[in-house]
Amino acid sequence: MFFHIVLERNMQLHPRFFGRNLKENLVSKLMKDVEGTCSGRHGFVVAITGIDTIGKGLIRDGTGFVTFPVKYQCVVFRPFKGEILEAVVTLVNKMGFFAEAGPVQIFVSKHLIPDDMEFQAGDMPNYTTSDGSVKIQKECEVRLKIIGTRVDATAIFCVGTIKDDFLGVINDPAAA
């Protein structure tokens, strides 16, 4: 699920950036530092949408670095148990398959794939129904439900299922 929230961060800025466009430098550094990171609490920071306030800088003794407390708005993505996501399959093996929904990796184990889909080893490993009408392979898009998440301090990993109504392959660029 996506959220638009306000976060705060203390930015350390090198003295060489002190000048006319200090603020621009600060913001671009913030974006470089924060976007794409993952915190267990808020999830993945997808994008910074605005800066609320930049507090008074504090010069560090010895280094000359200046610390600015910055409040910024950002879009975060946090997967939840029970959430339905659309993901792209990245890897298929006999244990199941891995898929990615943006920054999140999701594993769907074999017993959470519908029973009528069989693993086919080979050049392009895939799961296929007995009549061959549905095929899960690399690069195809699936809709899945998250049934478990593991949230570490800096990473989130999910386990999903496609063994439910309206879940499964939604688009297969390879077949098209």
């Binding site: 890897l91 093996n93 244990m95 199941g96 891995f98 990796q105 594993f107 184990s109 478990g148 998440t149 593991r150 990993f157 386990v159």
Partner: peptide
Amino acid sequence: YNALDALRLI
């Protein structure tokens, strides 16, 4: 292990 460890185990 369980499926949540999958990424490390592959």
